[in-house]
Design a protein around this nucleic acid. Structure first.
Lengths: 214, 214, 214, 214
DNA sequence: GATGAATGAGGATTCATTCAT
DNA sequence: CATGAATGAATCCTCATTCAT
């Protein structure tokens, strides 16, 4: 278990200690993520995570204060992935662009899978809740700003309550994975994009924007 | 804590045994519900539930095999509340009606609060998942049937993918409570109803339906 | 649930209360015996015994201070059955008579079955141990006395240690049920009687006793 | 409680991990044995065993799945001790040899004491019963084979039922400890050996075998 | 007396966390 | 630094016993 590796040209302590430590930390994070997803947060023990990462139980606690902190670190690393992308509304062919955005977000979210763990934690960890709420507020503000720009340009329905529409859009982005589970079918992002666009643009405007692609 | 109840025609000597037992069972269910909501399912112990209900630990196990079974009983009692109401689309003034339905459903759901516990259970209890999936399928089928009726009458957009719209409507109903949490404001059910109706009816049709109220 | 039974000639409180109580007590004893045998003493709960006897849990404690006391009562009622019969050695045809005695004792013991419960209790209940030891001492004394009579008449081996022979005989009587379990075959009481007689009588004497039957 | 042991050649830094773990395991086994014997199996808790062995409750469960498994391990370690030795019948001076065998077996059995726990377990643990039955069958077969050899050489009584005699011998070996308890006197193994030999050899043969010692 | 629901102490077992090596 | 055995508090659940009806 030496850190050195004997080679032809002498010994190379190739991997610096810090870097090795980072590898272990990453292995623990990844093992935590995988196990949290497959078994749930409470059902996963620190020992299991360590075992899965190929380190000793005690090593877990060198890198993380406890199980909760590992999850926090996971979130910090990936919080930007949890936040959905910001659509640009007065674009050319917004439906196509939105479908693309949604698909990309969905794939990233699914790779991470972290959203599956969150519901378990929210009721018992208020700090956790705050972090998420904060992130969501930022996204909300960004989407709302874009919607306002579109509204000012006269592109949107004129009876829109922008807050509710913003929330609706966020809800779509956060619940796409539910759709797949429920329907059992692969998700048609174009249909979802169509629905969102119908909420934002009146039919005439939308038609124009579609044509302006060329 | 007297078991006697003074009535118009004298005193009833005592609440019959069965009824008293049912009271205790109900107290346990209610305590379970409250504690699950405030602390989360895993964080709540059978002992706590019993204490909260004012009975001994052992009494809990007289009425429920374990914590999980209590939750199942809660679900059984209220599963119909979890399932959102079925809107009738080709109605007169659908927005108003829908807003009313949503508000009623929201209030019932909130009183129960059970939906907050569900996400914690789903990853680890497959039987649980089945029950919910089954319930959701039923609702989906009902909403979809109504939409098809409306479509056949020529009331809806003609480019609708009814499956996706159905899912969108269900998503709205299941996520209203999220809206409140996120916005911090009281929910405007009229706005939500307006959004849903925009997804279903083209502007002209909607206008007609609104007017037909008189 | 009245104790009275209305008949043509008035009311007959036929079964006196004391007697009914005794019936319940007996039912509990019998249920205790049966359940102790089938499940073991520790594995049997007071509730089960009451249920099996057709009375309420609380009724159990009206008749017995606790589970242990029920077992004690069982023993008291049947302690004489546990004690093996006293063979008469200088009899005509002792082998046949002994075989008969053994079989009778075995059948009684088996019907009762109580011996199966005893080993479980002995290590933890010294009073219990005392009772049994006392009973065994009495039997030992009786068998020993008979053996001495036979010895004085010159019927036995002259190098016998009577104490050890007495113990051997008792051991046989207490372990017949083991023989059946181990061999899986029905017990041949004649063979056992032959063995015991060989321990007591020299071949010549035995031959004489056999012949004297006529 | 130092892990160091001063030896002739200096100090051994520590007992290697595996060995230390085995020490703990052995301490738990020994504590289990002692407590099972003094209090009975059911009356002994895992916590008590751990305390008695000087370790924490949880440590018990590192080495044994539960109380039952500890007992199984005890049995596995000592099952050969439970099985009585195999007498050689057509030996010179068989009584003396048998007395010696019995005494040795008795001492070993008593040191272990495990036989006291067995009766408690048999009614409720069928796997347990199987293990013991299996062991007993082996011994039975061995003793029976020896008896047959002696019979073929014309050394035994000619009216012997070998099965019953075999069982009788086993019964003796399994019940010697009972004798002590009942009589309160030290056991005279010579007397027991004499009794067994009388069951096997006719007086003439026995006399010959005794003399052949020289 | 009879009932059986209620009690709560106590046992089995798990697991987050520490610490000697 | 890494290790993984050890810790013991905390949980689930049972059951002997009591007591209000």
């Amino acid at each position: 278990m030496s850190d050195r590796e004997e080679g032809l040209v002498g010994s190379f302590p190739f991997i610096p200690k810090q870097e090795r430590a980072q590898l272990k930390r990453k292995a623990l994070l990844e093992s935590g993520r995988v196990l949290f997803l497959s078994k749930g947060y409470e059902q996963t023990t620190a020992k299991e995570i360590a075992l899965h990462a190929g380190v000793a139980t005690g090593t877990f606690y060198r890198y993380f204060a406890d199980k909760r902190q590992l999850l926090m670190a996971l979130l910090e690393d990936h919080i930007d992935l949890l936040t959905p992308p910001e659509p640009v509304w007065f674009n050319i062919n917004p439906e196509k662009r939105l479908a693309h955005l949604l698909e990309k977000h969905y794939i990233q979210l699914n790779e991470l899978g972290l959203y599956r763990v969150l519901p378990e934690l929210l009721p018992k960890d208020s700090e956790f809740l705050e972090i998420l709420t904060e992130a969501k507020k930022k996204i909300h503000a960004r989407i709302l700003a874009r919607l306002k720009q579109a509204q000012e340009k006269g592109l949107t329905w004129n009876d829109l309550d922008l807050n509710t529409v913003t929330w609706t859009i966020m809800m779509f982005m956060n619940n796409i994975h539910e759709l797949e589970k429920q329907s059992g079918l692969p998700i048609d992002f174009n249909e979802i994009a169509k629905i969102i666009c119908r909420l934002v643009y009146p039919p005439g405007i939308l038609e124009q924007l579609r044509k302006s692609e060329k």
